[in-house]
Design a protein around this nucleic acid. Structure first.
Length: 809
DNA sequence: GCGGATCAC
DNA sequence: TATGGTGATCCGC
């Protein structure tokens, strides 16, 4: 192995460095020449060296599995094969071909938008990005091997005429909104994967469509299309002729043009009732509205639809018939790399085992099941059978939020701390915008050799304030700096991430009006202090639970902005250099630790007085446990609500409170600190406990005795906006419940009605996925388990059967 | 829970 | 001159 001819190694390494012709528009170009240019441009750079290193690591992984493979006995293989067959049968039985899933993907999206808005670009090879990194390129540039994720300076070597346009994400977002409006007409619950990509379930639409008159299936040419804007702002007129030919002079696999002279009418186009016609119609409308083209794949599940959308790109579509035969046929020669979730590394590892096509996966399943993890194998088997998710579900709550920046070498510790603080500040802002609080803070560092390191710490309770985040990140950074000994850390990237969010509450932006309302009520209760109280949070949580069915401003997934901010970041780094006003944190850090920061010296509530949300009386304790007990007593009702009241989170909360109090007592017990920022850091947790106050319908608290607290202001229902003649929260809650429920019911009914009428579908797109008919989407629609997992340790220690048993269980 | 790695966009 | 940012997941500790 060590003396392998270098050519072999280079070849392997190419799979990492070189151009991958996986993307559309890369057919028939001089690969060797392109690759040699890429390699020449990279050779000797730190980046290149690091890639080489990573590639060697992959090679070692491969060596390992090859060794394991050599140890596998016939008996093991035979047993595995039997299991595979059993599993295959089970999967086969569960095969569902009844859904019509569509994956839509805009063609060279960013580049296409720029070309649309700047006609001179249309004839030129161009890309969006910077000299450091390109986001995407047009098809003209792709002929030279210029592609997304390639540094601009290398792209320039491949194509000296290349025009590089800086990205304009606001514009792309706006266009994305336009296409999403169209998506919603076909599936109000469509799943956006990024600005330019989405999955749609056409099944329902097609059922309705069968009964539609032709008029509903006729769409006019012109940028307006949507009935709401019959304005004659015909920007199209001028550019019509150079529109579609411009982007793609020759669209290789394109089916009949969208502009087929099908319609009798010159200025409109008819569409049939079948899937292909419906999808063609959707793409037509996208093009008329945005002057941009899209490609689509139609298949019985998401995995297949995604592959299909690539088949006739650009400006084309491909339908895979919903029969087992067609599916298996389709998978037969499909390269594994085409499947979402199988990347460069997995491809290489599989390739070492002779697996390059999806059919090989099926053939080698027994072997694979002995070499890869359960998760990976399950995925392999499903892929080999052409199975995938048949139900589209919107993403759940986000699990992390982060910010990172790349810059020119940064070695000065003071500057590093200053940068770290800046990142924490920005992150805290973002967290607040979404009302998030997290317990885990991670610091990410990349040194000038491109080596990446992450360090994390989990707090006993959730935080969101800049100071709290920084206190942790700073310590993590300090440790790394110290570890580097006398040498400085030479960084090229720093990032901060928050995760382990406590709950979904406090999604303030979704319901400003209600929160505003609550804020008011609460301020008066707290004597005007704009402090987030239990009252506030519990209300917010409860209302949100109810409102979540009405509100789906789910932005879908992140990863929408693959920004190329190198310029910006360099500037900001430079600014940091100059910014003498920043206290050099390294000094203040000397010998310091968390204790230096009052805001983090204890995570407990510092308030000396806590107000019970039920009886509104002051509870003289800082012990959250005691306080909770008080509330429990106040409540004195069984939480009978069957709705998921997140008992876990309540449990966690109590646990943490215990932990906190223990810590507090253990540490300097007498050191009483003032309230830090007015917001109790762990407040986010409380919803779990408090929420039952408001979720409990049978909650027949006699009086809640706010009377003693002075007159509560008039309570105005945030739904019906009527003042309620009561100051009893329980009564008021019941009223809001009724109002909300009615509204939800109304919305639901509305949807049922609207769905008969295509023009109104849009109106119902705000029905939350939470109200979808129960969908047991078995897999996440996201990336499926990384199939590239190393063979499990169990296997390495020869316990081969262990894994496979679990896998087939 | 942590850290490295892979993957998608 | 020069190789990104964000989020998710998996695996082995």
């Amino acid at each position: 192995m060590d003396n392998e001819p270098t050519s072999t190694k280079d070849e392997g390494f190419l799979s990492r460095m070189a151009l991958n012709d996986n993307k559309a528009g890369m057919e028939g170009l001089d690969r060797d020449k392109i690759n040699s240019i890429i390699m020449e441009s990279s050779k000797g750079s730190k980046f290149y060296e690091n890639e080489l290193k990573k590639d060697q690591q992959v090679n070692q992984r491969i060596e390992k599995i090859m060794l394991q493979k050599a140890c596998i006995t016939q008996a093991q293989l035979k047993k595995a094969q039997a299991q595979v067959e059993k599993m295959t049968l089970a999967l086969e039985r569960s095969r569902d071909l009844s859904r019509v899933i569509v994956h839509v993907d805009m063609d060279a999206f960013y580049a296409a938008v720029e070309m649309r808005d700047c006609p001179e670009l249309k004839t030129k090879p161009m890309a969006v990005g910077s000299m450091s990194m390109l986001s995407t390129s047009n098809y003209h540039a792709r002929k030279y091997g210029v592609r997304a994720a390639m540094p601009g300076f290398i792209a320039k070597k491949l194509c000296s005429d290349l025009v590089i346009v800086p990205p304009n994400f606001d514009k792309y977002r706006a266009v994305s909104e336009e296409i999403r409006e169209i998506f919603a007409n076909y599936d109000p619950h469509f799943l956006p994967m990024s600005l330019d990509e989405a999955y749609l379930d056409f099944t329902e639409h097609l059922q309705q469509r069968q009964a539609w008159p032709e008029s509903l299936r006729t769409h006019r040419y012109g940028p307006k299309t949507e009935k709401e804007t019959p304005t004659p702002k015909d920007r199209k007129a001028k550019e019509e002729e150079d529109l579609s030919p411009v982007l793609f002079e020759e669209s290789p696999g394109s089916p009949p043009s969208l502009h087929g002279p099908k319609g009798a009418n010159e200025d409109s186009e008819f569409f049939g009732t079948c899937v292909e016609e419906a999808v063609r119609e959707m793409r037509f409308r996208i093009e008329q509205k945005t002057m941009l083209t899209a490609s689509a794949g139609i298949a019985p599940n998401m995995m297949l639809a995604k592959v299909c959308s690539d088949k006739n790109k650009p400006n084309g579509q491909y339908r895979l018939p919903p029969t087992r035969e067609a599916v298996m046929d389709f998978m037969q020669d499909l390269p594994v790399r085409k499947v979402c979730g199988i990347g460069k590394v997995s491809e290489k590892m599989l390739s070492a085992l002779g697996v390059t096509k999806c059919s090989h996966l099926g053939q080698q399943m027994a072997l694979l099941s002995l070499l890869f993890s359960e998760t990976a194998c399950r995925n392999f088997l499903e892929v080999s059978l052409g199975l995938g998710s048949t139900r589209i579900s919107r993403h759940e709550e986000r699990k992390s939020m982060s910010i990172e920046r790349t810059f020119k070498e940064l070695s000065d510790a003071a500057e590093q701390f200053a940068l770290c603080r800046e990142l924490c500040k920005d992150l805290a802002e973002d967290m607040k915008k979404e009302g998030l609080k997290g317990k885990t803070v991670s610091l990410k560092l990349k040194n000038v050799n491109f080596e990446v390191k992450t360090r994390a710490q989990t707090l006993p309770c959730a935080v969101a304030e800049e100071e709290d985040i920084f206190a942790v990140a700073k310590d993590l950074l300090k440790t790394e700096i110290d570890n580097e000994g006398p040498h400085p850390l030479k960084l090229r990237l720093m990032g901060v991430r928050m995760s382990a969010f406590v709950s979904s509450e406090d999604k303030a932006p979704m319901q400003k009006s209600i929160l505003g309302f609550l804020q008011k009520a609460e301020e008066s209760q707290n004597g005007g202090e704009p402090q987030q109280s239990f009252f506030h949070r519990a209300h917010a949580k409860r209302l949100q639970l109810l409102m979540s069915s009405v509100n789906t401003q789910d932005e879908g997934c992140g990863a929408e902005a693959s920004g190329i901010p190198s310029k910006e970041t360099k500037e900001s780094a430079a600014a940091l250099n100059k910014n003498g006003s920043l206290v050099p944190p390294v000094l203040e850090n000397k010998g310091s630790s968390v204790e230096d920061h009052p805001s983090t010296s204890g995570y407990e509530a510092h308030s000396q007085t806590l107000i019970c949300p039920v009886c509104s009386s002051k509870v003289e304790t800082t012990d959250l446990n005691a306080f909770n007990r008080h509330i429990d007593i106040c409540l004195n009702v069984a939480s009978t609500n069957p709705k998921k009241s997140e008992p876990d989170s309540a449990h966690d909360y109590l646990q943490e409170c215990r932990e906190l109090n223990k810590q507090r007592r253990q540490s300097e017990a007498e050191e009483e600190q003032p309230v830090s920022s007015g917001v109790c850091p762990q407040g986010g947790q409380r919803g779990g406990q408090i929420q039952k106050v408001f979720l409990t319908q049978s909650d027949s608290k006699p009086t809640t005795s706010q009377q003693g607290q002075g007159k509560r202001p008039d309570l105005v229902c945030p739904v019906c906006h009527l003042t309620q003649e009561t100051d009893d929260l329980t009564v008021f809650n019941r009223h809001v419940d009724l109002c909300l429920n009615q509204e939800v019911l109304h919305e639901l009914k509305g949807q049922a009605t609207f769905s008969q009428n295509p023009s109104a579908v849009k109106n119902s797109k705000n029905i939350a996925s939470g109200n979808l008919p129960k969908q047991v989407s078995k897999g996440k629609n996201k990336r499926r388990g990384s199939p590239s997992s190393l063979p499990s340790k169990k296997l390495r220690s020869l316990g081969l059967c262990n894994t496979i048993d679990k896998f087939f269980k």
